[in-house]
């Protein structure tokens, strides 16, 4: 059985595919902090400098999702569901001009998932 730790809702997936029409290579990066923080940012792949301090959590419709290692330490026991809301945030995330904003819903990883990811 294959395990995942992130997924995207069908509604969010629709908005993602709209952004893809104009941007060939994308990434998600989970933000933290003030204002529009605590939400995932959708960015052009070459825009954000990534290195070993960014943890790869999986792909959403072929778009890789990353989170900074420091933040991951506090989030690692949770499963992330990337959803969408009407609104426009206030950041450089690429869906904002469409009048939507990605947001994260979460649940706890279950025992089998924790074991699979070496977190038990």
């Amino acid at each position: 059985m294959s395990y995942r730790r992130i997924e995207i809702t069908p509604e969010a997936s629709k908005i993602l595919s709209k952004v893809k029409e104009k941007h060939s290579a994308l990434i998600f990066h989970q933000s933290g902090g003030c204002c529009d923080g605590s939400s995932p940012m959708l960015l052009d792949k070459e825009d954000l400098y990534l290195d070993e301090s960014d943890v790869y959590l999986g792909d959403l419709d072929e778009v890789p999702f990353y989170m900074n290692q420091d933040q991951y330490e506090y989030w690692k026991h949770t499963y992330l569901i990337i959803d969408i809301a009407e609104g426009r945030g206030a950041s450089f995330s690429l869906e904002i001009p469409l009048g939507y904003r990605f947001l994260v819903k979460s649940r706890l990883l279950n025992a089998a998932e924790l074991a699979h990811f070496g977190l038990d």
Binding site: G32, G33, C34, S38, D47, A90
Partner: peptide, 13 residues
């Protein structure tokens, strides 16, 4: 800039 961390990183880049 006042805002969140990922955009902060981008602006620093």
């Amino acid at each position: 800039f006042t805002g969140e961390t990922t955009t902060g990183q981008l602006i620093m880049q």
